[in-house]
Amino acid sequence: MRYLKILILSILIFCSISFVTIINDLNIPALGFVDNPCTLKIGFPYTFYHQFLVESPIPNSGWGKEIIIDYFFALAISIGLYYLNEYLKRKTT
C-alpha cells in the first residue's frame, strides 16, 4: 500500500511541475509577457517537450528522452517526502 502512495504522489508531483513550467511560457499581452510567442517548453529540470514555430500556421514540436529523467526526479522527491513524513511521525510518538 505504501508503494502505491509513493507512486501516486510521484505522478502528482511530476504533473504539477510540468504544469508550472507551462504557466511560465504562457504569453499574456496585457501583462507585457510576450517575449517569444511562438515557443513552448515543458519540463523541469530538463525540457522534455519543445514546440516552436518555423513556418505559419503549423507548429513544429519535439519530444525528448528527458521525460524519464524528470519522472525519476519526481519519484525521488516523493520517496524522500514519504520517508521524511514517516520519520517525523515516529519521532513525535
Results as ranks from 00 to 15, higher is better:
Thr21Pro: 02
Asp25Trp: 08
Ser18Arg: 03
Pro29Gln: 04
Ser78Asn: 07
Ser18Gln: 02
Leu26Glu: 09
Pro57Lys: 03
Ala74Ser: 14
Gly80Gln: 06
Pro29Arg: 04
Gly62Pro: 07
Asn60Tyr: 11
Phe33Ala: 10
Ile28Pro: 08
Gly32Ile: 00
Ile68Ser: 12
Ile68Lys: 09
Leu84Val: 11
Ser78Glu: 01
Asn36Gly: 02
Phe44Met: 08
Leu84Asp: 06
Val34Leu: 05
Thr21Lys: 07
Asn27Gly: 01
Ile77Val: 11
Tyr71Leu: 05
Asn85Ser: 15
Leu81His: 01
Phe44Val: 05
Ser56Trp: 13
Ile28Ala: 08
Phe14Glu: 04
Lys89Ile: 13
Tyr49Gln: 01
Ile17Gln: 02
Gly62Cys: 06
Tyr82Asn: 09
Phe14Thr: 00
Asn27Lys: 14
Glu66Pro: 06
Thr47Arg: 01
Ser18Phe: 01
Ile17His: 03
Ile79Pro: 04
Gly32Pro: 05
Pro37Thr: 06
Ile79Asp: 08
Ser61Gln: 10
Val54Arg: 11
Phe33Pro: 00
Lys89Trp: 09
Gly43Pro: 03
Ala76Lys: 05
Cys38Trp: 14
Tyr83Met: 08
Leu26Tyr: 12
Glu66Lys: 08
Cys38Thr: 14
Ile23Phe: 10
Thr39Trp: 09
Gln51Asp: 00
Gly32Arg: 00
Phe48Asp: 03
Lys41Cys: 10
